[in-house]
């Protein structure tokens, strides 16, 4: 198994992410660097829309590796996450070989890797030998607690045991990014296997810089104006759901598409739905909008 780190310092990680238009929080570059050096998964928690998922996308783009994404949901099981047997092909193989081969031989044949359908977690162990695959296990808090148990062997030893085949070990340790919105507590066993990073909402300077990077053509002044408005919206005490960076980017792109170069109350009222996605919040903000700088 090879855990060769693609970067030799946290500063290199930061540069690589910046090239992908991802502006890492202070400390995140170090966390990614350590995860890559120590061969440990990185658990990233934070408010929705803070750029947790984007980390894995930027890492995959930066390293030229394939991004293997497992979107978690309630009821997710080994068949969707790990592997499944290709039953139709196995049945066909049985029919084809039932007269010509011995039972043992047919059994060996149909329970070989040829008939194994590899899902994201198993595919992450394959690797192409050149790039460390990037595995994104997204929103793990949506999955059942039992599913976390399934991950433990993979995350600690980077191997998966298939009863019919034996243990499959990773050729290269993948870069694993696990995200959670903290809607429930994760098990201690899972957390123990991971390094940890927490993403807060960016401050004004950072958010303005993100806008400039991600929405070209916005201009420094307008980006700052938008960021300042979003910061004020986030400070509204009654909001059920505060806008994340993803919403800010959507809103900025919408404003740019409307050829706006500064914020005015009419434009804000017309496009607020890009920023705020809750009916009560929308109503409250339309009644008492935060001031435009």
């Amino acid at each position: 198994m090879n855990a060769g780190a693609p970067w030799s310092s946290p500063a290199e990680v930061e540069r690589a992410l910046l090239e992908q238009n991802y502006l890492p929080e202070a400390g995140l570059s170090l966390a990614i660097y350590l995860a890559s050096r120590l061969g440990k998964p990185l658990l990233v928690e934070g408010e929705p829309g803070c750029g947790k998922t984007e980390i894995a996308k930027a890492l995959a783009a930066a390293t030229g590796a394939e991004l293997l994404r497992l979107q978690c949901f309630e009821g997710l099981d080994a068949r969707s996450a790990l592997y499944d047997w290709d039953y139709p092909r196995q049945l066909l193989a049985i029919r084809l070989h039932e007269r010509s081969e011995s039972v043992e031989k047919v059994e060996r044949e149909i329970f070989s890797e040829r008939y194994l359908l590899k899902r994201p977690l198993l595919r992450a162990l394959d690797g192409d030998g050149r790039h460390r695959p990037v595995l994104l296990i997204d929103e793990i808090d949506r999955a059942d607690e039992e599913f976390e148990g399934l991950l433990l062997e993979l995350l600690s030893d980077f191997q998966v045991t298939v009863p019919e085949l034996g243990t499959i070990r990773a050729r290269q340790i993948p870069l694993v990014v696990i995200t959670s919105n903290r809607t429930r507590d994760l098990s201690d066993a899972l957390k123990r296997r991971c390094l940890y990073a927490y993403l807060e909402y960016p401050d004004l300077e950072k958010e303005a810089a993100i806008l400039e990077h991600r929405v070209p053509g916005l201009g420094a002044g307008f980006a700052r104006e938008i960021a300042a408005f979003v910061q004020r919206v986030r400070r509204e005490p009654e909001l059920a759901k505060r806008p994340g960076v993803a919403e800010t980017l959507d809103w900025a792109a919408a404003l740019l598409a409307l050829d706006r170069s500064s914020l005015d109350p009419e434009t804000i009222a017309a496009t607020l739905g890009f920023l705020v996605k809750d009916a009560d919040d929308l109503r409250a903000l339309r009644e008492r909008p935060p001031t435009v700088a």
């Binding site: 400390g27 170090l30 966390a31 350590l34 120590l38 928690e45 390094l195």
Partner: peptide, 26 residues
């Protein structure tokens, strides 16, 4: 292991590494 992997004279780096490796919640 994290301290081995970073510059020991970088106090902020060691401090951040402590958070990354020893903490599991905000």
């Amino acid at each position: 292991e994290a301290v081995d992997a970073i510059d020991l004279l970088d106090r902020d780096g060691v401090r951040a590494a402590a958070g990354i490796t020893l903490a599991k919640s905000p």
